[in-house]
Amino acid sequence: MNQSETAGRVLVLIPALNEANSIGRLVDEVRGKHPEFDLLVVDDGSTDDSAETARKHGAIVLSHPFNLGDGAARQTGFFFARRCGYDYLVHLDGDSQHSPDQIDRLLEEVRSGRADLVVGSRFLGACEYELGLLKKIGIRLFSLICSLAIRQRLTDPTSGFRALNKKAIRLFTSGYYPQHYPDADVIISAHFNGLTIQEIPVTMSHSRSDSLHRGGKIIYYTYKMLLSTFVSILGDPYGRKRKCRPNK
């Protein structure tokens, strides 16, 4: 039995939307570093060849017939992981801002049992690019809200580089997982559902397709995040019920 089998099955998840130019390289990189892990690309209704490119490069591909949102794409991956019995899942963004070199560091935290949900933070580590002022203020604000809500210091709740164990996968596939912008609200609801959260430093490079928090979207994002963070703090009624049930 090799090491990966004893350490549990791992799924690397990459949600992708119109990343045909870079997804092949990213898939190769992940598979080169970790041939022992399965790699799933969830194509969120791309209009280019992202799905076919990822598949050619050796990834398992799930395609949404139309665009649903970054959160829904991740959740599709979580469903896959749950049904196929994976023990751990690491997800990184499809735009190559997260380096596959650091998958091991995130995994180590969940494998050791120190955390159920591990978030890679660019502010604990190195951020290789300068963030816009609004984005910086936004991230600070949500870090603060998130840290206060879960009474634990968090620096980068918007990070899409995270590792989950089975408990977290189960929570995110049986309860609520936001369809769009799954950031601080996910962390808070995970906390209130009894998951241990840990943040570790990672390096992030500039992402090409980082248009998420720009323009009018920033207003909607702020509104959505404030509201969903607030209701997460109030408590997810389904989550609470689940918590009382003896699990496993």
Binding site: R55, I60, L62, S63, P65, F66, A72, Q75, T76, R83
Partner: peptide
């Protein structure tokens, strides 16, 4: 949609 994606996985 997620179910369809799962059923039609490649």
């Amino acid at each position: 949609t997620q179910e369809i994606a799962f059923l039609k996985r490649l």
